[in-house]
Design a binder for these strands. Structure first.
Length: 903
RNA sequence: GGGCGGAUAGCUCAGCUGGGAGAGCGCAGCCCUUACAAGGCUGAUGUCACAGGUUCGAUCCCUGUUCCGCCCACCA
């Protein structure tokens, strides 16, 4: 048994783990610190430590791996830098839930202990997604794996925070922010997801006169917040109300009187009653209106940080408070509505749909909440980020996403970066109990920078997770230190990610990269498809609607799974994945496997490749497949370079299955059947194995495992042929480059003729239901002698592939009685079917063929009869169409003759 | 309220810069032909959503319509 022998079917499971281990052990994934001017780098979008691999990750990682393997094989120092994100809120939630199961509250543990628990959790479960990426075959440089909370990155975070603070771009202030009462923290604007919900619009009467008879009716969806009203707004031009501006109304349920103000921005004449309650502490619009209209009035806050009603709202009588204090806002609504109704203030209610903001981590309804927070001034950072894309220093693929990017950055608001949780980068600011000054520092401080008092307390808030993510492209390379890695690999080549984090991550990385590195962090942003679930919903870590790609890998193999994703990665379209599709690509893997078996079976033990690929002994088929290979090389290379991954996949799929397997393997058989050592056999063996070898390298970035497994069985002398380097692994072998000297248009044309003849005979066989086992003869009548000689020379192919017992070729051949006929360019093909032929069936077949041709002729004739077309269309197009029409007409004539002969 | 994307074979989807409609699965027929039945060969199937327009010519460009999906937005 030769060591080149392969098992009958491809078994991915065994092969994959073995090769991955081998690659890793040999350090093939490792990129040198100094790239020597040939750097190609990609930083992975760090998955959450809490995450497990879902379809989005799988697609994302597959595409990056293709790029990195491709560049690595092409000779670059290719670095794919991996890592994970500490995912502040998400991770804290996971650990809290785990503790809750043990009936433990984090507050009972205390901050330090709790954080210790989270680190423990990370140590135990945080590596899961890394293992899954390995299963997929990701060729990340694991020696450089980073974590957003590790030592180096934490230092980068501090450096950035301090510098931005010193530059005045980070500030602290009391603002209305989005508050998640469940996660118990502030959120940034983009961390709030708006969902449409059915609600009610409550019309409430606010008494205008002391006797309560004259009333102003406001409409609101959130009646419970009325306790915090500080004004009622009407439109300044509203004839109904404009005279009331400046007067006051009594706020029902309270002892407060609030002013009526005119505000054209806040009030829409058409909506509701035209009068709006103003609650600055609990509504973003009202907050703005409050600043405009009543800057001196206190903003009445009625909710605490759990969104429960406060026990001490100004001007609210004890009786009312008793009912409401401590109640969650949602419950309070019912109580307030009931009170209003009982006291005759509720005028009416109507159904009303409106958008409700929800926490992107836990889906709780978010509460606008007035509190002191830390912010980043965005406009100074956004301007250069806009310019970088406008000027083309960064390009989005597909380009359409640039508009989304611009829209957001041009309307950007300051970024609330403080979070009231424990897991994350604690803000490096210290408050002085004595003088109240804030000290912001790279090092932990023990005394106030202003009054030197030792009574300083560090800020308890931590930073938004996305703050550290924004630094990822340079923090992972060692910044703020000036490392060789940073010099070699920054900026990175491309960022591969989904559109859902363009705001969260991509835009912020660009801003931070430009600000701190003075250079954009990447040249291209490739936005790939989003893998949605069955309902078209986006899959997300917190929604829990993820499908585990590992099942697919187990079932079909990582290579088949990767090829599926690649083939479906057409630009600008979402993916809905059907398992049958993976099955199809699994079959492809098996096809490749068996083709390789065939090749190895037909290599002699002492086989050595011919020195040159093309010798005088090469057959037409040999020249043809080598020529086609060059086309496949060019197409694949161009497709990957343009991020047209699906085109690369289909080009390879087509070449391997339909050209190499379906045609060339069959065509090589006549040569292989010659005796050992014969020149024709040697030439065919060379073409077979050379093409296979190059194809494996070409395919390797997409299907790394199977290509390595097969490649290792290829004779040493063939591996990396033309490069002179016999690599130990396909991973580090050279990526194929098109060899123009092997391009051969003549061979392609000649082969096409042979294939046409074979197809014509097969067609007759198929249509006439002639079993492949029954021996038939074929007669080919050619139009000119040269064609005849060409076919005669290649008759072996026709005999074998069409399974003929006899083949006659000549200009003078005629159609025998009772033969089926086929017409191709320049020749007629007859298959005598004495005794077998069903004349009626044959007539039908020819009739159908004729009908098709008539249709085509009509189309072309119409087109070419159009003078405008002939005069204005490019000459090549006209010539091509004219030739085609002539050919069709000739075919028609012959078909008609053949039909006539049938009677 | 703005913006984006989609509508192509029974299903899932390709069709790059306008020039005779494709793949996979499925379906029908014939085949276990010593690489592969996870296979081979052959075949059938499309008013390229609808209506206009530009053009010699439109699945492709423009306008509008309908139906899906998504993103953004402070309408109580």
């Amino acid at each position: 048994m030769s060591d080149r022998e392969l098992s009958k079917t491809y078994e991915p499971g065994v092969v994959e783990d073995a090769w991955y281990g081998e690659w890793e052990q040999k350090r093939y994934f490792h990129a040198p610190s100094d790239a020597g001017g040939r750097a190609y780098s990609i930083v992975i979008p760090p998955p959450n430590v809490t995450g497990s691999l879902h379809m989005g990750h799988a697609l994302n990682a597959t595409l990056q791996d293709i790029l990195v393997r491709w560049r690595r094989m092409s000779g670059d120092s290719a670095l794919w830098l991996p890592g994970t994100d500490h995912a502040g809120i998400a991770t804290q939630n996971v650990v809290e839930r785990q503790l809750a199961a043990e009936k433990v509250d984090r507050h009972a543990l205390g901050r330090e202990t709790f954080i210790g628990k989270v680190w423990e959790w990370k140590k135990e479960y945080g590596g899961r997604i890394i293992g899954q990426l390995k299963k997929l075959g990701a060729s990340c440089d694991w020696e450089r794996e980073r974590f957003t909370m590790d030592e180096g990155l934490s230092q980068a975070v501090r450096e950035v925070f301090v510098r931005l603070y010193e530059e005045g771009l980070i500030y602290r202030g009391e603002r209305l922010i989005n508050w998640c009462p469940r996660c118990h923290t502030a959120l940034s604007d983009i961390e709030v997801e708006h969902e449409d919900e059915k609600g009610k619009l409550y019309h409430i009467a606010y008494p205008l006169s002391d006797d309560g008879n004259i009333r102003l009716t406001v409409a609101t969806t959130r009646p419970e917040t009325m306790l915090g009203d500080t004004a009622v707004a009407v439109h300044p031009l509203d004839p109904r109300y404009k005279d009331l501006i400046g007067r006051t109304v009594a706020l029902p349920l309270t002892s407060r009187r609030i002013p009526i103000v005119g505000d054209a921005v806040l009030v829409d004449l058409e909506f509701g009653t035209g009068a709006v309650k103003v609650t600055p502490a609990h509504d973003f619009n009202d907050y703005e209106a409050g600043l405009r209209q009543t800057p001196n009035l206190p903003r009445v806050r009625i909710l605490d940080d759990k969104a429960d009603i406060l026990p001490d709202i100004p001007d609210v009588p004890a009786g009312v408070l008793k009912m409401l204090a401590g109640k969650p806002a949602k419950k309070a609504r019912g109580i307030v509505v009931q009170l209003l109704q009982e006291q005759g203030f509720l005028v009416t209610t109507e159904d009303h749909g409106h958008a409700v903001g929800k926490c992107y981590r836990c889906k709780s309804v978010v509460e606008p909440y007035l509190s002191p927070q830390w912010f980043v001034s965005m406009q100074p950072l956004a301007a250069p980020a806009i310019e970088a894309v406008e000027k083309g220093r960064i390009t989005f693929v597909p380009k359409g996403w640039e508009n989304t990017y611009f829209d957001w950055l041009r309307n950007i608001k300051d970024w609330c970066i403080s979070r009231q949780i424990w897991w994350g980068h604690r803000i490096p600011a210290w408050y002085c109990d004595d003088c109240g000054a804030i000290t912001v520092s790279r090092e932990d401080v023990g005394s106030c920078s202003s009054c030197k008092s030792a009574k300083v307390r560090q800020e308890t808030d931590v930073l938004d997770t996305w703050f550290s993510s924004a630094l990822w492209p340079f923090s992972t390379l060692g910044w703020p230190a000036k490392t060789r890695e940073l010099a070699s690999y920054y900026p990175t080549a491309v960022l591969v990610t989904g559109f859902d984090i363009i705001f969260f991550w991509v835009a912020r990385m660009i801003m931070m990269g430009l600000h701190f590195m003075k250079e954009a962090p990447f040249r291209h942003v490739y936005i790939h498809a989003l893998v949605r679930d069955a309902e078209g919903q986006k899959m997300s870590k917190s929604k829990g609607n993820v499908i585990d790609p590992l099942t697919m890998i187990e079932q079909y193999g990582a290579d088949a799974f990767r090829l599926t994703l690649t083939a479906m990665a057409a630009q600008g379209r979402d993916i809905k994945l059907a398992p049958e599709r993976i099955e199809g690509y699994r079959n492809f893997a098996n096809k490749l496997w068996n083709a390789s078996r065939f090749v190895f079976m037909n290599l002699d033990d002492e086989f050595t490749p011919n020195a040159g690929l093309l010798t005088g002994d090469s057959s037409l088929a040999d020249r043809w497949i080598l020529s086609r290979l060059q086309a496949a090389v060019t197409e694949t290379h161009n497709a990957i370079a343009d991020y047209r991954f699906n085109d690369a996949a289909s080009s390879l799929y087509h070449f391997i299955w339909h050209e190499y397997c379906d045609w060339y393997l069959e065509l090589s058989k006549p040569s292989l059947n010659q005796e050992k050592g014969s020149p024709a056999r040697k030439a065919a063996q060379t073409a077979l194995v050379t093409t296979l070898e190059a194809t494996l390298r070409l395919l390797h970035p997409i299907m790394p495992f199977i290509t390595e497994e097969i490649w290792q069985k290829i004779p040493q002398g063939v591996r990396g042929a033309g490069k002179g380097t016999a690599a130990a692994s396909i991973m580090i072998a050279a990526y194929p480059q098109a060899d123009e000297s092997l391009r051969n248009a003549g061979a392609e044309q000649d082969m096409q003729m042979v294939m046409d003849v074979i197809s014509a005979i097969r067609n007759i066989r198929g249509e006439m239901n002639i079993p492949p086992s029954s021996q038939i003869a074929a007669i080919i009548k050619v139009e000119d002698g040269e064609l005849g000689r060409h076919l005669e020379k290649n008759a072996g192919y026709v005999r074998t592939l069409a399974r003929l017992a006899e083949l006659r070729i000549g200009q003078k051949e005629a159609k025998p009685q009772g033969a089926a006929a086929g017409v191709i360019k320049g020749a007629e093909v007859y298959v005598p079917l004495e005794g077998v032929l069903d004349l009626g069936q044959e007539r039908d077949r020819l009739g159908r063929e004729l009908e098709r041709i008539e249709k085509d002729i009509a189309l072309f004739a119409k087109k070419l009869g159009n003078r405008d077309f002939v005069e204005r269309a490019p000459r090549a197009v006209v010539e091509k169409d004219t030739a085609k029409l002539e050919e069709l007409k000739a075919k028609r004539e012959k078909l008609e003759q053949n039909l006539k002969m049938l009677g």
